[in-house]
């Protein structure tokens, strides 16, 4: 169970204009701008739920994910995930979560994927039996059998993403955060990733929180969506709320963004 209550996060960003004279001025005096990335965000996610967390760029999506995974401390508000506050009990908390950052890799570039997995086994202190069982399961579900002996750098993007997801699930986390897991993937890989997420959620009851710009991901995976814009939750409901009256979800979403001046 995840509950977030009135969470606020403000960033201080130094302003810098282009040009020679302002660069010179900045030498002595810096101006700051306050950006309210999150402004009173609240929601609850039950165990085993699959939620799409969407919003335009810079809306506060990644701040939320960072707070939920314990990387960022908010100024105000409370957040409890299975009884733990992520930023206070970080080490304890992160044992139970898996995170996939779509744009970055956690696999070691030059060594076979299996070596990275073995390292993760040590990092998460996974016992040998559970590790073997999970690895077998994931290999089977994600079709990794031919890939594990290959160095990461030789994998295609789609293959790498599948390995990436497996790497985040080796320690059997209860919650999985997926940050743009299908970005840049071809159609076949996208379908494979979606299929897997559905199965994972159905079979292991893993809570999945997914951020993406790809509305097809959302359509295929989640019934519930949370839409954030300018630090506020604008919509917490399901796809039909957006799609209603439009030909496609993308159009519905675009019109939603426009009506909120996003």
């Amino acid at each position: 169970m995840i509950t977030m209550q009135d969470v606020c996060k403000t960033y201080k960003v130094s302003k810098r204009d282009a040009g020679f004279s302002s660069a010179f001025k900045a030498l002595f005096h810096k101006e700051y701008e306050l950006i309210h990335a999150l402004d009173g965000v609240s929601f609850t996610i039950r165990d085993g739920e699959m939620v799409g967390y969407i919003g335009p760029n810079g809306a506060g999506k990644s701040s939320t994910i960072k707070i939920l995974s314990g990387i960022l401390t908010p100024e105000e508000g409370t957040c409890l995930i299975d009884g733990l506050t992520p930023w206070k009990n970080r080490i304890e908390h992160v044992k139970n979560i898996g995170v996939v950052f779509g744009q970055r890799t956690q696999l070691w570039w030059d060594v076979p994927v299996l070596d990275s997995f073995e390292l993760l086994k040590e990092i998460y202190r996974i016992d040998a039996h559970a590790y073997r069982r999970n690895l077998e399961q994931l290999t089977d579900m994600l079709g990794l059998s031919g890939l594990l002996q290959t160095p990461t750098r030789q994998l295609s993007l789609g293959q790498r993403m599948r390995c990436e997801i497996a790497a985040s699930l080796l320690h059997d986390p209860k919650i999985l955060f997926l940050d743009e897991p299908t970005i840049g993937l071809d159609a076949v890989s996208k379908l494979a990733v979606r299929d897997f997420i559905l199965r994972l959620n159905a079979e292991k009851k893993t809570t999945v929180i997914l951020t993406t710009h790809d509305m097809q991901d959302i359509e295929a995976l989640t019934s519930r969506i949370i839409l954030i814009g300018r630090g506020h939750i604008l919509l917490d409901g399901n796809l039909t709320d957006i799609k209603e009256g439009f030909a496609s979800t993308d159009e519905g979403l675009a019109s939603f963004y426009q009506s909120h001046n996003l």
Binding site: K66, S69, G70, I71, R90, I91, E92, V94, K95, I97, V99, F101, R104, Q106, I123, Y124, R125
Partner: peptide
């Protein structure tokens, strides 16, 4: 700058060691 430290923070081990 490459965001690798985020990854370190979401792992249940001491940061210095990682």
């Amino acid at each position: 700058s490459r965001g690798e430290f985020d990854r370190i923070l979401v792992r249940p081990r001491n940061e210095i060691f990682q």
